[in-house]
Design a protein around this nucleic acid. Structure first.
Length: 639
RNA sequence: GGGCACGUGGUGUAACUUGGAUAGCACGGCAGCUUGCGGAGCUGUUGGUUGCGGGUUCAAAUCCCGCCGUGCCCGCCA
């Protein structure tokens, strides 16, 4: 287990703290009696709009001015005059009522460069998670068709958020919930029995998806098909039935195909939980036992025979539900089958260790990252999955209502802490050029409508190949394909991740295959250029000490250094908010600053500044590499 | 009927949680930069009453109230 002490202070937070202390001291000396406790000093901090205004800024004078009923300009002036320099802060100035600090660029550069070199791959990581156990659920695609471009968003978000949590010292369990008992699998099973034969010429999930679409079309023509499928849904739940065995087999083959997609995108898991194993473990009745106090079973009326939760119990804790058309939510149907909310509640009771499932697990497949995915199973051994402190569910925004009810139910049975620690990461839908992605209609696969995640990757790779083949910078032509693949992945991933999760995305080939501007390839390109400079300059990381730190100026070199000093705070922010776009923004900032540095400050011909600039370039490659790896994007040294 | 999310130049977006200096970036348009460490780049320029109207505040894209628009949800479907 990693020692959390090593994460004590990042360069940017260290300087912030010095700044805050200097301001505090100055304010106490000047206006000892003035109540400034109300103003949280941290929250007044920002970066000045221009480099020549300084490096850190505080708007504290505005708050004090209000209390003292004088002008902020005068207060800022006084504070700036009496604040004492610190180890890394040279001087203070006031401007427009702000108090600005000028960091000693030489000392700070040394601090940042040394920290990056020392921590290397660990640079940018944080200890805030304190090894708390958290389970992240994604993408939980029905095993009846391939992933489409919308499922990909879910999987990428889940995978990257897991990476970020891990970088913040959380102990992460990457979990995938497989509903092999639902209508979708029943539909596929009907097709399997009546319409199709798998020849092996196509990826299994693709084939199954097309079959699934055909069955739906058949259902429109012959209503009796729907009834047969409904019958299959029941049969699937019968432990030991022929249908349940075949259904699981089809689902497993489909999931194995999903995993090929996942691996191609560098998306991994630790454990899969199958609905059929949840049923076998009687998780539901155990969940009912612990929640019986809030459940009702009406003998008559609309909900006769079902087990329900009254919404008026929930509404006081979730005001969004007042005024709903319904007055209750069904947990168990009158036919005995659980609803989605019922299942999800039981599942979360397991996740938090409220009930024990006695699951057995077997190894499902060895992943390319060297770790196995375990799967619940009727055989195998017991393992320590679940029993977490926090659960993050990557589920689209349309399910907010259900997630809310499910979460609040825990408060009603006396587990407020569980409600508070189930995070519904509600992401916006991915639409395709004017229409919705519809699983049922299957408007995203087959016959020229290639919107599967596999289609996207092969299209992106094709496009990257065209560009990479023309590149004169790639010395080893045999690596062109591998490089093109890395570039294609970066383009697609970056494009998905740069948009805030809650926003809807209209999928378009043009933006998904963006290789310029705010894009993954742009960041990779920056990295490749930096690497080339290091190679030409024969730089090895031990040379860091040879750099003459006094050659650092207040130009783009220092701007870049400052940005690099923020890495850990950026990762912590991305983690706290579950927003990978915080990281993509950071990478673009870094890349853009490096480009400016590169254009204006020669490294190899930098004369006396050569060594320290090489060190800056090296530091940049480390920070880029670390940040990109959290996004699941790999680097190449030429492209 | 109720609720949720979104609304920022022609387009895609950042900043909204925690109010703060000239609303940042990219695409597109226009004009430039390569016998220079990699032009997938850089520089300049064009284009915004931050959906509308009020309010709070020294200060509002950000907070509050009321509207409008778009999408989604409120099922014994998952």
């Amino acid at each position: 287990m990693q020692d959390l002490k090593e994460f004590a202070d990042s360069p940017s937070s260290l300087v912030k703290r010095e700044f805050v202390r200097a301001l505090d001291d100055a304010i106490n000396a000047l206006y000892g009696g003035l109540k400034k406790e109300e103003a949280n000093m941290e929250l007044t901090l920002s970066e000045p709009t221009e480099l020549n205004l300084g490096d850190i800024s505080s708007s504290i004078a505005f708050k004090l001015a209000k209390i003292a009923k004088t002008s902020p300009v005068g207060i800022a002036k006084e504070i700036a005059k009496s604040a004492k320099p610190t180890e890394h802060i040279l001087r203070f100035e006031d401007a427009n009522g702000y108090v600005n600090a000028f960091v000693d660029e030489k000392k700070y550069a040394e601090l940042v460069l040394r920290d990056i070199t020392k921590r290397a791959k660990g640079y940018g990581r944080s200890g805030v998670g304190k090894h708390q156990k958290v389970i992240v659920e994604y993408p939980s695609v029905n095993p009846a068709h391939p992933w489409h471009v919308g499922h990909l968003r879910n999987a990428l978000l889940g995978s990257v958020i897991s990476n970020i949590l891990e970088a913040c010292s959380y102990d992460v369990e990457r979990e995938d919930y497989i509903d092999d008992l639902g209508l979708q699998v029943a539909t596929a099973l009907w097709g399997w029995n009546n319409m199709g034969k798998y020849s092996g010429s196509m990826k299994f999930d693709q084939w199954l998806g097309e079959l699934y679409v055909k069955v739906n079309a058949e259902m429109q023509k012959r209503p009796e098909v729907k009834q047969e499928i409904d019958g299959l849904v029941k049969k699937l739940e019968e432990v030991g039935s022929q249908e349940s065995r075949t259904g699981r087999e089809i689902a497993e083959r489909c999931v194995a195909a999903h995993q090929q997609t996942a691996f191609a995108y560098g998306i991994y898991h630790d454990v899969m939980i199958w609905e059929s194993d949840i049923v076998k473990a009687h998780l539901l009745s155990k969940a009912l036992d612990v929640s019986s106090e809030i459940l009702e079973k009406p003998g008559e009326g609309k909900y006769a025979g079902a087990i329900i939760v009254k919404l008026d119990k929930i509404a006081p804790l979730a005001r969004e539900l007042e005024g709903s058309r319904e007055d209750a939510k069904v947990i168990i149907r009158s036919n005995g089958a659980a609803t989605y909310i019922g299942k999800d509640f039981a599942f979360h009771a397991w996740k938090f260790g409220l009930i024990d499932a006695g699951f057995r697990y077997k190894k499902f497949i060895e992943q390319p990252n060297g770790k196995a995915i375990y799967s619940t199973s009727s055989e195998g051994s017991s393992m320590k999955f679940g029993n977490v402190k926090r659960a993050i569910n990557i589920i689209d925004i349309g399910q907010t209502y259900e997630q809310l009810i499910m979460r609040v139910m825990f408060s009603l049975i006396g587990h407020r802490e569980i409600t508070d620690n189930i995070v519904h990461l509600a992401y916006g839908k991915v639409n395709i050029e004017g229409e919705k992605l519809s699983g049922r209609a299957g408007n995203w696969l087959g016959e020229g409508r290639n919107y599967t995640a596999d289609d996207l990757l092969s299209e992106a790779t094709k496009r990257a190949m065209e560009i990479a083949q023309k590149s004169e910078k790639i010395s080893n032509k045999e690596s062109v394909e591998q490089i093109a693949r890395a570039i294609a992945l970066s383009a697609v991933k970056f494009e998905y991740l740069r948009v805030a999760p809650e926003k809807e995305i209209v999928f378009s080939w043009n933006t998904a295959l963006n290789f310029e501007g705010n894009s993954g390839p742009y960041v990779m390109y920056t990295y490749a250029r930096a690497r080339k400079i290091l190679a030409r300059g024969n730089f090895t990381s031990q040379d860091l000490s040879q750099g003459d730190i006094s050659e650092v100026t207040r130009g783009y070199d220092f701007a870049l250094i400052k940005k690099m000093g923020e890495a850990q705070e950026v990762v912590e922010k991305a983690c706290a908010e579950s927003r990978p776009n915080v990281l993509t923004d950071y990478l673009l900032d870094l890349s853009s600053l490096f480009s400016k540095f590169y254009e204006s400050m020669p490294v190899l011909k930098g004369e006396r500044a050569r060594e320290v600039r090489l060190a800056i370039v090296f530091a940049l490659t480390v920070v880029l590499e670390n940040s990109l790896s959290l996004l699941g994007i790999s680097t190449v040294s030429e492209m």
